[in-house]
Amino acid sequence: METLVAAVAALIYGALCLLLGERTPFSRFGMYARLQGYTQAARPWARVEGQLCAISALAAVAPVDLDPLRPGPYPCSQTWAALRDLRWIESHVGPGPFADRVELGLLWWSVDDQGRLCQRFEPRCATTGRRA
């Protein structure tokens, strides 16, 4: 009887999840299920006076247009982290200008057919700021 109840609950919940999709507490639990063609990834990153640093390492930045960094047009499995990076910048905008030259851009990773990984920084906008 116990196993039957558990099995029926699993079937009903599973069927409702497939039917309803992402309506919590129902879900298809499809996180990272779709990885086809995932050979590149990018995330907002900063270069301060020529040195790469994470966005959260910025203590202040002068006003800058963040549209080129918004997730969506570039591949990123950490969209959450990218959105939070942008919110971090928005909440640390100061009147400026600051002493350091800051480039905001994307840190790209790619993987080739042999599984080799490589990394490059692509600046997308420039401003001034300072590190924490």
């Binding site: 699993a10 497939l18 990272y32 299920a33 050979t39 499995s77 790619s110 993987v111 599984g115």
Partner: peptide, 29 residues
Amino acid sequence: ATYGLAALAKLREMGLGWADPRAHALLLI
């Protein structure tokens, strides 16, 4: 069911090819 659905989602999308190491290496890096 939650775990079965998670596995099913992967198999429906990519079959056993889901375990190809390239995309996972990218997620890790």
